[in-house]
Design a protein around this nucleic acid. Sequence first.
DNA 1: GGAATGACCATGG
DNA 2: ACCATGGCCATTC
Length: 107
Amino acid sequence: MPPGFEQAVLALIGDIPPGCVCTYGTLAAMAGYPRHARHVGKLLSGLPEGCGAPWHRVLGAGGRVSRPGSHHADLQKLLLENEGVALSDNGRVSLKRYGWPTEYFFK
DNA sequence: GGAATGACCATGG
DNA sequence: ACCATGGCCATTC
């Protein structure tokens, strides 16, 4: 991986406005590395909790929360709720409302 | 070099 | 709408 990937992704995450969410794939693509959704996940998994980065605004495709049942899933729900993002019972988010950038941006 | 792994994704039944 | 499959790609044995 070229250096800067990490930076690019983190920067993008930092640019996500509060109360909004983005997806791994979209994030990777915007960072300039399409098809690298997994690596974004890898990166976030290694991120400490109090790193200041709003990792909780990052979701899987379709606004689904990854690794259900784990500690981070619950925490993520809380943090999002705390920012005013409504979560479905299963832990789903409506990208149509909270998605960033807007889904139609690319289409 | 090859196999296994991962906070993933799109598709088809 | 849910699950199984196959495809991705860098990292780590």
